[in-house]
Simulated assay, not measured.
Amino acid sequence: MMRHSVRENWARVRRSCLKFPERWRPRRRQTRMRYLMFLLALFVSAARAEDAKPFNPSDYPPGVQKALRYANDECTGQDGGEVTFAPDTVRRIDLTGDGRDDYIVDFRDTKCGDRETTYCGTGGCVIKIVVTLPDGSAREVFDGHVRSYKIMPPSVKRGAARIIRFDLHGSLCGGFGAQACVKKQTITATPFAFRQP
């Protein structure tokens, strides 16, 4: 019979205590990790909320500011109140493939006073696409109601213009309002519009 020292016996007892079934074993490490992940997510969201500054039209070039003035003109024409833009009203992205910033101005979440539907209707919400020309000026190439849009992945060809997939009112495809109507358009400096057939 082997004899063990007190220290060895104590180590064996501790090891055997750790052999409890999985469900009885404390999961301190997992609990701590979840708690740390929760705190990290909370910290990141608080930091983003602090970094989010209010929308300011003067942060954009004159061509985009002109497109944004539409909201003020429309609201004034309807005897509305103050125009409130959503933080993501203007999206900055190179659409033409020339390396310059172009802009999509989406009035979906823009409010006129306490009205939320001034810029939207059965055909969707007003969006404007403004492209930057080689001389630095801007040109509005699209202005219309769109239910939704999706910018398609860029072409493998370097410098190629982006294609946008538009979901439109059914009448623009020869149907009626509730019918699906999808059209694609390559964005260049040439203005375009969708018309009923």
Rank of each mutant, 00 (worst) to 15 (best):
D102F: 00
D98A: 00
G144C: 07
K111E: 03
G80K: 04
M152K: 11
W24H: 09
N72I: 14
I163W: 04
A178D: 09
D59W: 05
S16V: 11
G63Q: 14
V156P: 02
F107C: 11
F176Q: 14
I129E: 00
E82N: 09
S16R: 15
M152A: 12
D114W: 07
E8A: 15
G144Y: 06
R3D: 03
A178P: 03
V141S: 02
L68G: 12
T118W: 01
I151N: 13
A178W: 04
A52L: 15
G170C: 07
D102Y: 01
P154M: 02
L172W: 01
T76H: 08
C75N: 08
G121R: 06
I127W: 02
V126D: 04
T118R: 05
L133M: 11
N56G: 00
A67N: 01
F38N: 11
R25F: 00
I127S: 07
H145P: 04
G175N: 08
C125L: 07
C112M: 05
S155T: 12
D73I: 14
E74M: 09
T96C: 10
V130K: 03
Y35S: 14
R108I: 08
R15H: 12
P54R: 12
D135H: 03
R34M: 15
G175S: 10
H169N: 15
V130T: 04
A52C: 14
D106E: 08
F192N: 13
S148P: 01
I104L: 03
E74D: 10
W10I: 00
I163S: 06
D102S: 07
V105C: 03
R29N: 13
T118V: 10
K157L: 14
T76R: 12
L168H: 08
P153H: 03
G159Y: 00
G123A: 09
P54H: 06
Y70A: 06
P57K: 03
G77H: 09
R69L: 15
R27I: 13
D59G: 03
D94G: 14
A86L: 02
N9Q: 08
T76L: 10
V146P: 02
Q78Y: 09
F194S: 11
I129L: 11
R15Y: 11
R195Y: 07
T76S: 12
G136N: 07
A138F: 00
R115V: 10
G80F: 04
A41N: 15
R23Q: 08
V182S: 13
A180M: 13
I129Q: 01
V13P: 02
P191D: 01
Q65S: 06
A86C: 04
I93H: 12
G177K: 05
V64M: 11
T76N: 11
S58N: 07
V126C: 06
T132P: 00
S58P: 01
L68Y: 13
N9F: 00
E74C: 07
G136P: 03
G174H: 07
G174V: 10
P54Y: 04
Q179K: 11
A180G: 14
T76I: 10
Q65R: 14
I187V: 15
L172M: 05
T110K: 04
R162I: 02
G136K: 01
A189R: 01
V13I: 12
I151S: 13
A46Q: 10
R27M: 09
R162K: 11
Q78H: 11
D79C: 14
P191T: 09
A71T: 11
C75Q: 07
G63M: 12
F142R: 01
G77S: 13
M2W: 03
F20G: 12
K128V: 13
D101F: 05
I164V: 09
L39R: 06
Y119G: 00
P197F: 01
